[in-house]
């Protein structure tokens, strides 16, 4: 099955390079990626609903990961969306356990190879289908 990813820059963060490069490379990995640009949690979840996303990808270098990241998970839960939520960007090591606790499935730092993001997504999505 085609995997569909909704990719967003979280909130006001302005750095689009990472999110767009990852989007283009996930496309190269055979996924369908809907690039949202900047959005806030509520709108990101709405887009995931409309697009039937398997994955919500959040990108941030803006220091808003702890406030807005978990909010995406929470709203998704409330609305009954079961997409995988992953995050990437400049995120302090110590915050990763907190994010995972809040329901972010994985956090990818700046030097992650795209393969490892793609294979993580594939295995998680296939698991949830099986």
């Amino acid at each position: 099955m085609q995997i569909k990813v909704v990719m967003a820059k979280l909130g006001l963060d302005i750095h689009w390079r990472g999110a767009l490069v990852v989007s283009r490379m996930l496309r190269d990995e055979g996924m369908e990626v809907v690039y949202l640009g900047n959005q806030f949690p509520e709108q990101i979840v709405d887009a995931a609903i409309q697009e039937g996303a398997d994955v919500i990808g959040l990108s941030t270098l803006g220091g808003n990961h702890l406030t807005l990241g978990p909010k995406v998970v929470q709203i998704a839960k409330e609305k009954g969306v079961d997409a995988l939520v992953i995050m990437g960007g400049v995120i302090p090591e110590d915050d990763i356990p907190l994010l995972k606790e809040a329901g972010i499935s994985e956090v990818f730092g700046p030097e992650t190879r795209i393969e490892s993001i793609a294979s993580f997504i594939r295995s998680e999505v296939n698991q949830s289908i099986a």
């Binding site: 283009r24 990995e29 369908e32 990626v33 809907v34 690039y35 949202l36």
Partner: peptide, 8 residues
């Protein structure tokens, strides 16, 4: 794969 960029 596809990059769906209209939404932005």
């Amino acid at each position: 794969g596809a990059l769906l960029g209209d939404r932005i």
